[in-house]
Simulated scan of single mutants.
Amino acid sequence: MALKAQAPDGLVYVSLAQLMALEADAQGLSFLARQPRASVLAGSHASRVRGRGLNFDELRRYQPGDDLRHLDTKASLRSGTPIVRTYTEERDRPALMVIDQRMSMFFGSQRSFKSALAAELAALAAWMALKGGDRVGALVFDDSRIESISPLRSRSRVQAICAAIARFNQALDARAEESDSTSSLDNVLQRCLSVAAHDHLICIISDFAGATERTLHQLRQLRAHNDVIALQVYDPLALELPREGRIMVSQGQLQVELAVERRQVHTPLSDFLKGRLQEVAVLLRRSQVPLMMFSTALPAAEQLRLELGKRQGYHP
């Protein structure tokens, strides 16, 4: 049956107005490096964002003020006069946001749900791309659907992306049945491969539930000809279970209450949650896709600014 869209509150369900308002928070933020070694992909990762490339334009005579590094030695020797190679900078490139709104994301023990945090991160990334002069598109997906929005450099395109995210987000409902998370994740990455053949900036925002070796292979394929960044959202409960009290675990209409103060419950559940989070992080690092992790306990913009500041030497 069709589920009724939920009223937005900003933390469980987001609104279009909320996502559009994040334009101000995206000011001054960029995934691109300010210095060659300060990229978001630097550090423990094997590669870095390529940034906009330079396309060869023409050979012409040297003029005062030209960059001497662009001197063409062979052409200069042939002509007997200094010759330089000129380039034009790529003005924009497609940026593709891949936003997870599956039932596995519909959870949160502190502040917001993972699905709401992912929605805000996606809006911030879209605004960042547009302000950087890029065309912006998106793939928004849940357990059964994928909505594709082709890249375009305009505010109206960012608005269309935010509207799609809000629709998917508000359709989430605890009464819905969760489908195969592995299949839906791999399906959207396969669609991504067909949409982003090369020279895209791809920003994947997900909890990466259901990630497998096939997911790893698809990420490597995407990374071969594109810049790919993974933003993994998680709930603090996965890192530290409370020592007492009870927690409710739900999957669709099935709910189970667990007494976490009991050792035989706390230890295996804690080990499972921590282990799964670490498994996904290891898999993403094996793909050599840069990974940034975001907790539901803190606001999206605050965490993104902090993460980019760490990597790029940014100071508000």
Rank of each mutant, 00 (worst) to 15 (best):
K4Q: 14
A7S: 14
A7Y: 04
P8S: 02
V12T: 15
V12W: 00
V12D: 01
Y13P: 00
S15R: 02
M20W: 13
A21N: 13
E23F: 07
G28R: 05
R34C: 03
P36F: 10
H45C: 05
H45W: 11
R48G: 08
R60H: 08
P64H: 11
D66P: 03
L68V: 13
L68K: 09
A75P: 03
R78D: 00
T81I: 12
V84Q: 08
V84I: 11
L96D: 02
M103D: 04
Q110I: 10
F113A: 10
A116G: 00
A123L: 03
A123V: 04
A125G: 06
M128E: 01
A129M: 12
L130C: 00
K131H: 03
D134A: 01
A138V: 12
L139Q: 09
S148C: 08
L152C: 06
S156M: 08
V158K: 00
C162R: 05
C162N: 14
I165N: 00
I165Y: 02
R167Y: 05
N169I: 02
Q170K: 03
L172I: 08
E178Q: 14
D180I: 04
D180A: 07
D180Q: 03
S183Q: 13
D186H: 09
Q190N: 12
A196V: 10
A197Q: 15
I202K: 08
C203N: 06
S206D: 04
H217A: 15
A224R: 15
H225E: 12
N226G: 01
N226A: 01
Y234V: 00
Y234H: 06
A238E: 01
E240C: 06
P242M: 07
P242L: 08
S250P: 04
V256D: 05
V256P: 04
V260I: 14
R262K: 11
H266C: 03
P268A: 01
L269F: 06
L273V: 07
K274T: 07
R276F: 03
R276V: 04
L277H: 08
V280C: 05
V280A: 08
A281E: 07
L284F: 03
R286V: 06
A300S: 10
R311S: 05
G313T: 11
G313I: 10
Y314N: 12
